[in-house]
Amino acid sequence: MSSNRINWFKYSSPATFYPLAGKLAPWFTAIAVILIMVGLYMGFFVAPTDYKQGEGYRIIFVHVPASWMSMFIYLVMAFWAAMGLVFNTRMSGMMVQSLAPTGAMFTFLALWTGAFWGKPMWGTWWVWDARLTSELILFFLYIGYIALHSSIDDNRRADRATAILVLVGVVNIPIIYYSVQWWNTLHQGASVSVKSGSSMASVMLISMLIMAFAFWAYTIAISLARVRSIILERERDKQWVSELPEIKQ
C-alpha cells in the first residue's frame, strides 16, 4: 500500500510532469490549428445553406462545440478535484486551476454566439431559454471558482477549498438544469426551441464534430501551457526548477 502510494506521488509530481507537458503542448497546438481550419472551412464553405435559417445558422459550428466544451471541462475539473481530495496529489489542483479559465472562456463564447444566433432567429439577443439560462449559471459557477481560488493566498488551501466547491457544483448542475427546464416549461413564452440533430445534414454534423475535436485539442494545449507556468510559479523555490535549462540561461 505504502510503496504504491509513493509511486503514485512520483508519477504525478510536478518535476516529471513539467517536461512532459512541454513536449505535448506543441503537438496539441498543431492539431488544434489544423482542425479549426478544416472545421471552419467545412462549416462555412462546404456545409449547405439551411433552407429555413439561411446563412446565419453557421454560427452553430462554434456555438454548439463551445457549449459542449463548457460542460465537459467542468466535469474534467470535478474529476481532478476529486482526485486531489482523495489522493492528495499536488498536480490535481494545478490541473483544475489550469482548466478553469478555458472553461469560463468557452461558456462565455457559447453565451455570446448564442446571443448572436438568437438575434436573427428569434429577433432578440437574449431568450430565457432553459439551455441559455443553465449556461449562464454554469458561467457563474466558473467565475465563483476563479474568485475563490484567487482570494486564497495559500495554494494548497486554495486547491482543497475550490475542489470542494467544484464537487458541490457538479452535484448541483443536474438539479439546476432540471429546475430551469421545469421553470421554462411553466413560463412557455415566445421562445422557439431549436431542434437540431435528426434533421441535420451529415456534412453539418461532421463539421461540428471536427470543431469539437479542435476545441478539445485547443483546451489540452492551452491548459498544458498554463499548468507549466503554474508549476513554475508554485515550485520556484525547488531545486529541480533552478536546474531547468530555460531557467539557467
Binding site: A147, G169, N172, S179
Partner: peptide, 30 residues
C-alpha cells in the same frame, strides 16, 4: 458550505454571494 469555504478570507461577504447564489437557484425556482 459557502460560509465555510470563505471563512477568514478578505472580501468574504461578496465572495459568499458569488458562490452561493447560483446554488440557490433551484430553491428559488420551486
Amino acid at each position: 458550505i459557502g460560509a465555510a469555504l470563505t471563512l477568514g478570507l478578505r472580501g468574504g461577504g461578496v465572495l459568499v454571494s458569488l458562490l452561493v447564489l447560483p446554488l440557490y437557484i433551484p430553491v428559488l425556482i420551486f
